[in-house]
Amino acid sequence: MQGPFTADVRPLFPNAAAATVLGRDAAKAAMKLSIDKVAEYLNLPPSTVERWVRQGRIPIQKTGESCSFDRTTLEKWAQQRGLFFGAPEEPSTCLPQSCHETLLAAMKRGGIVHHLRADSAAGALKAGVAHLPLLSTESRDILFERLLEREQLTSTGIGKGVAIPHPRSPLSGVDLPAMIATCFLESPLDFDAIDDRPVFVLFIILCPSLQQHLHLLSRLAFCLRNPEFEALLQSRPSAERLLAKVREIEKTLEGGGF
């Protein structure tokens, strides 16, 4: 496979040299930074960098009237002064995928189970964890322990017969997308909930990051505040009806567009 370019260049040594020189110039040009870029990298306003140039406090390359900055020189300069120099971090505090993660997708992933048989809160958690897809046996055991740990702290029974069991921090070593398993219990159980009412539905939340956990939790809480959604839960709806309602509520939340 010989392209026309390589075929032309290979026999002509001077041309090849010229090409390298050109390449080096291009690399040099890539190392040059504008004043705005330098200001951004130093996390300072451009007016400060301009003043530093005027006062001679920052190394520059002068070419006639204009000046430019060399990246390696500046990196060394900043390091000597203990200044941070580098591309600024993304301003958004939550990662894009977590912000666009929807409750609907997480609930779909987690699955919806009806008639979960259990005679105690711990038993219900054990059975719920067993229904979570994609997890290895060890991870299931760890997750169950963590959920129990969390329950011992304070019950996750948030009232009106709903509980949202979740581990206190994201599970390490589990690289899975966020999911919420919805488990309707066969018979309501005492969950030590805040309103002392027996719990009939569990939403087990498992998220890879705290940010995403808060994001999904706030959406779930928004749904649970909705009286229609509450009534729907009481009727122990089928997966399709439940997800359709979630989709409807989420749409109002995002103003119709994703």
């Binding site: 300072l44 400060t48 530093w52 000597q80 002064r81 203990g82 200044l83």
Partner: peptide, 14 residues
């Protein structure tokens, strides 16, 4: 924050 940066730049030689 700016004061520290300025002081570092003004007092470090070389």
């Amino acid at each position: 924050d700016r004061y520290r940066k300025e002081l570092k730049v003004q007092t470090t030689l070389q």
